[in-house]
Nucleic acid binder design. Structure first.
Length: 775
DNA sequence: TGAGGCTTGGTTTTT
DNA sequence: CCAAGCCTCA
């Protein structure tokens, strides 16, 4: 081991803990990296110091991240330090590392290196067909239920055989599920395809089944580093274990460095197991732990709020983020009357910050659920503020893109019948479901693939028109396959588009959205050209791999000059000068679905924590008093997490407890220590929030909301609380006039009156807040 | 084969 | 309320 002098530029500007994280040498190292503590910098410097100190060759480094973006960032930073010496390093995501290994080793276990990667949509399509075939829906099995269960099992490394060994054969539903699981596994194998979860799980199975193969990679990767370790699921954990295990010939496993922050674990619902990090020291005996607590991102005010919130999670290693940049501004809180009112606040503050010189791309708005974008978008558009929404429908998930990719997949992997089915009648060429079934049956009886069956269309006794169409399609595939042998991907795609007329057909329709679809396809063509340019040696398979594993078409370009809107989940790993966290309400944050689950509220708290710690300088938290959801307007309660921010750190523009505009007034109830809010929709009571002046109840005295948008929702929010209504009652509504109650549904605060109005028709009203009177 | 009506379900989702 | 998917009918 080479001693690094303290003048080493690699250690410049590092604090003692960071330095230790770079310099420590041993079999296992856990870097507990709080938000904004410079972990990427530490990780890349650690790599650089291994190379510079001649402790490792580049090819012995394996650095694993979860996202392409994180991998790209790490590679870029490593290149800045090491230049060409980074060549040969594996710096990539879990999934692409596994694909790389699987492509090399696929022939060991019944796949070819041309295998397809099924995304979750492909999986569902397949499962849907299996459910239909086995009539499993009559057993209460749904596509999403089965897909979710299969995914969970794979993440736990349970394959069909081990599942069947423990299955309860007396439970017909379980037997049915097993049948589908088996069919699904067979179909993937027959199609020479892996789903996302397989990529990890099959690599683990490969290593376990072929120790000499595993040894090869163990000997290659002497230094394994894993980022965001708190988000690893069991399969990923096992993969890391397998990679760093001792070889059969006694060669010790490589050194393992993991970086993570259990306070930022927000993917438990996807199988991430927080114990992987919290029990790291138990798993890897002699592991060394370094804690990075100094934060280089946020003001002390923001960090104090974050610390205070997260400290409410028990069962965590205590750590306190701190900074030496000073307190900065107070957090600003706002309570809107409605989601639109809240959005108006966000927009107003963004305009003000922009007027003070902050760029739009330095600001971001976070929310818990995608459906919250609607109100925000409306106000952003109306205010002409530039914005973009991250996440949402991904480019490669669009139907038109998947159609076109179906051709490329068919060419690259002829065994993939799912892809063949997709393109069979796309664009329309008269090959209907009956023909498809006929072809599939023919393929099954003759033990050939669907692709091969297309060549025998003549012997199927189909009409001349259909046979001709199949022959033409088959010819096109052959032709394009030949082209793909040597030619660039763009040429293959161009030929397909020409022969099928796909884009022209889209342009010819009257649906205005088809123009956008045509543009998307042309965008894809541009992507292939770009790929060809960047990868002169790249094959069609390489292209498809990249496409499958790149999520959103790299949405991040920070120079765009727009405000970014995204979910709290998407926000992880990002940072902005100003951050708005919206919808900080019970039922939303924590979300109603997770509030009852074990560990749910704690994970939601971490989500809030992640949101808070994204902010560098300014943090805004906002909520609405009423929120429309599923067509109904519900009373919303401030989130329990709001109370966990110390009073003195928030300046309320309009506080939840008292929104009547008296300057300087702050709800004592809101920030009072120990006054735990435990009410909810079902409780029928307002809980601890209203103790000063009745919480939401006092709102009738409020001044009119400042935005005209608020008028869209009734601004006379009142509390009819215990107003008793029964079917047959006559009522009067402020907007709809008089009517008769037909029935009452729901309970407590959620009681809904179904009213037939004399002139306004039938309406459903939330009794608690509707502006109604019993006549 | 496509349009339109009906049902259903509606957290989050790095790959 | 509202989007996606399914079914039905011309």
């Amino acid at each position: 081991m080479t001693e690094l002098s303290s003048a080493d530029p690699l250690l410049n500007g590092l604090n003692p803990q960071q330095r230790e994280a770079v310099e420590y040498r041993g079999p296992a190292l856990l870097i507990v990296a709080g938000a904004g503590s410079g972990k990427t910098s530490v990780l890349t410097r650690r790599i650089a110091s291994l190379i510079r100190g001649r402790e490792a060759w580049p090819s012995q480094i394996l650095a694993i991240t979860f996202t392409n973006k994180a991998a790209a960032e790490m590679r870029e930073r490593a290149e800045q330090m090491l230049g060409a010496a980074t060549e040969g390093m594996w710096i990539s995501t879990f999934h692409s590392s596994c694909v790389r290994i699987l492509r090399r080793e696929a022939e060991n276990f019944g796949f070819t290196k041309a295998f397809t990667i099924y995304d979750s949509h492909d999986s569902r399509t397949l499962i849907k067909r299996l459910i239909k075939e086995t009539e499993a829906d009559t057993y209460g099995l749904s596509v999403s239920g089965v897909a979710g269960k299969i995914s969970r099992l794979k993440n736990e490394l349970t394959d069909v055989d081990s599942y069947s060994r423990n299955a309860n054969v007396n439970d017909p539903t379980e037997v049915k599920f097993l049948e589908i699981f088996r069919g699904y596994t067979r179909a993937l194998q027959a199609a020479n395809a892996f789903d996302f979860d397989d990529l990890i799980a099959q690599t683990v199975f490969l290593f376990r089944a072929f120790p000499h193969v595993a040894d090869h990679y163990r000997k290659q990767f002497r230094h394994v580093m894993v980022d965001e370790y708190q988000d690893t699921n069991h399969a990923q954990y096992a993969l890391i274990h397998e990679l760093t295990r001792e070889c059969a010939d006694g060669t010790p496993g490589g050194s393992l460095t993991v970086v993570g922050d259990s306070d930022q674990s927000i993917y438990a619902f996807r199988g991430a197991d927080i114990r992987n990090i919290s029990e790291f020291e138990r798993d890897f005996k002699g592991a060394h732990v370094v804690m990075l607590e100094q934060n280089y991102r946020s003001t002390q005010t923001i960090l104090s709020a974050a610390n205070s919130v997260i400290s409410n999670n028990f069962d965590r290693k205590d750590k306190k983020l701190w900074t030496d940049v000073g307190d900065g501004d107070l957090i600003v809180g706002f309570t809107g009357y409605s989601a639109h009112d809240e959005a108006q606040f966000v927009v107003d503050e963004i305009s003000a910050l922009h007027a003070q010189g902050m760029g739009y791309n330095e600001m971001a708005v976070f929310y818990r659920t995608n459906s919250q974008t609607r109100a925000l978008e409306e106000i952003f558009i109306r205010s002409a503020l530039p914005y973009r929404i991250l996440g949402g429908t991904k480019f490669y998930e669009r139907a038109e893109i998947k159609d076109v990719l179906g051709y490329l997949v068919t060419i690259a992997n002829p065994a993939d019948s799912l892809a063949v089915r997709r393109i069979l009648n796309t664009p329309k060429r008269g090959i209907g479901p009956a023909t498809e079934t006929g072809l599939q049956n023919y393929a099954d009886t003759n033990q050939i693939t669907l692709r091969e069956a297309l060549r025998s269309a003549d012997s199927l006794g189909l009409g001349p028109k259909v046979s001709g169409a199949i022959a033409k399609l088959s010819g096109l595939i052959d032709e394009a396959t030949a082209l793909a042998e040597s030619g660039p991907v763009a040429d293959v795609l161009t030929r397909i588009l020409e022969e099928t007329g796909y884009v022209d057909l889209l342009r010819a329709t009257r649906d205005p959205q088809d123009e956008a679809r045509a543009e998307n396809v042309e965008e894809l063509l541009a992507v292939t050209k770009e790929f060809d340019k960047n990868n002169p040696e790249g094959t069609l398979i390489d292209f498809l791999t990249e496409v499958s594993l790149v999520a959103a078409a790299d949405e991040l370009d920070d120079a765009s000059g727009t405000v970014s809107l995204m979910t709290l989940h998407t926000a992880k790993g990002l940072e902005y000068n100003a951050v708005f966290i919206t919808g900080v309400e019970e039922e939303l944050l924590p979300h109603r679905m997770s509030a009852g689950e074990p560990g749910g509220p704690a994970e939601e708290r971490r989500l809030f924590y992640v949101g808070i710690t994204r902010a560098r300088k300014r943090l805004f938290v906002s909520l609405a008093m009423s929120r429309a959801q599923f067509g109904q307007t519900n009373v919303a309660m401030p989130s329990r997490y709001l109370q966990e921010i110390p009073t003195e750190l928030i300046e309320w523009r309009q506080s939840p407890g008292m929104a009547n505009g008296r300057d300087g007034y702050q709800s004592r109830a809101l920030n009072a220590r120990g006054s735990r809010y435990d009410g909810g929709f079902g409780s029928g009571e307002l809980g601890g929030w209203g103790s000063t002046e009745g919480g939401w109840n006092s709102l009738e005295a409020s001044p009119k909301p400042k935005t005209e948008w608020a008028n869209r929702v009734t601004n006379k929010i009142r509390d009819n609380g215990d107003l008793e209504l029964v079917a047959g009652d006559r009522i009067s509504h402020a907007d709809f006039g008089e009517g008769t109650v037909n029935q009452i549904t729901g309970e407590g605060a959620k009681r809904v009156a179904h009213v037939k109005f004399d002139s306004a028709g039938a309406k459903k009203l939330l009794i608690k807040i509707a502006p109604i009177e019993k006549l």
